[in-house]
Amino acid sequence: MPLLTETGVPSAGRVTIVLSGELDQLTADQLRTAVRAALQLEPTVLAVDLALVTFMDSSGLGAIVAAKRWCDNAGCSLSLQALTPAMYRRFQVSGLTDLFGLPEPSA
């Protein structure tokens, strides 16, 4: 299943990218492209909504880490939204929960 990205209209300095589908080696570049385009809008917060992501591999995690680095360099904070417990576990196993300040989701 391909990854679909939808970037919302900036509101109060916040831009949201909603992802749906699989975030993997074949689709990670789509996220990178969406993040670069969203950063052109100069948000103070870039939110990435992961609620509709059905699968994510290490390439997807790598794309999200790259997005964090780009946001940091642009003076923008990256906020990961709507992680499922399984998605949270991927970040936890990878040692990335602290980097993103992710609270453990409710079951």
Rank of each mutant, 00 (worst) to 15 (best):
L26M: 13
L46I: 00
L80Y: 14
T44S: 14
D57Y: 08
L39Q: 03
A86F: 12
E42N: 15
M87R: 06
A74Q: 06
L52I: 09
C71S: 08
N73K: 15
A47D: 09
P85K: 02
A34V: 01
R32D: 09
L83F: 08
T44I: 11
L26E: 05
L46P: 06
R89S: 06
E22Q: 15
T44P: 07
V48R: 06
G21M: 13
E22S: 08
L50W: 02
S79Y: 08
L31D: 04
A74V: 03
T44R: 15
T27N: 01
R36H: 14
A51S: 12
G21Q: 14
A67P: 04
Q25C: 08
G21F: 13
Q81R: 13
L39A: 05
L41H: 12
G60D: 09
A63D: 07
T33F: 11
A86W: 12
L78P: 01
P43R: 05
Q30M: 11
Q81E: 13
V35Q: 09
D24M: 10
R36P: 05
Q81D: 13
S79C: 12
L31C: 02
G60P: 00
Q81I: 14
D29Y: 07
S77D: 04
D24E: 05
A28S: 03
V65Q: 02
D57F: 05
L78M: 01
D29M: 14
D29W: 05
S79D: 15
E42L: 14
L41P: 09
A63V: 06
D72W: 06
D72N: 04
V45C: 06
V45W: 11
T84A: 01
S59P: 00
D57H: 06
F55Y: 15
V35N: 05
C71Q: 01
G75E: 02
D72K: 10
S58R: 08
L61W: 05
A37K: 10
R32M: 07
G75D: 00
T27Y: 07
R32S: 15
S79V: 15
T27L: 00
N73D: 15
S20G: 14
R36F: 04
G60W: 05
S20T: 15
A74G: 09
D57S: 01
A51K: 12
L52H: 15
D29G: 10
D49V: 02
D57W: 11
I64D: 07
Y88N: 03
L80R: 02
I64A: 08
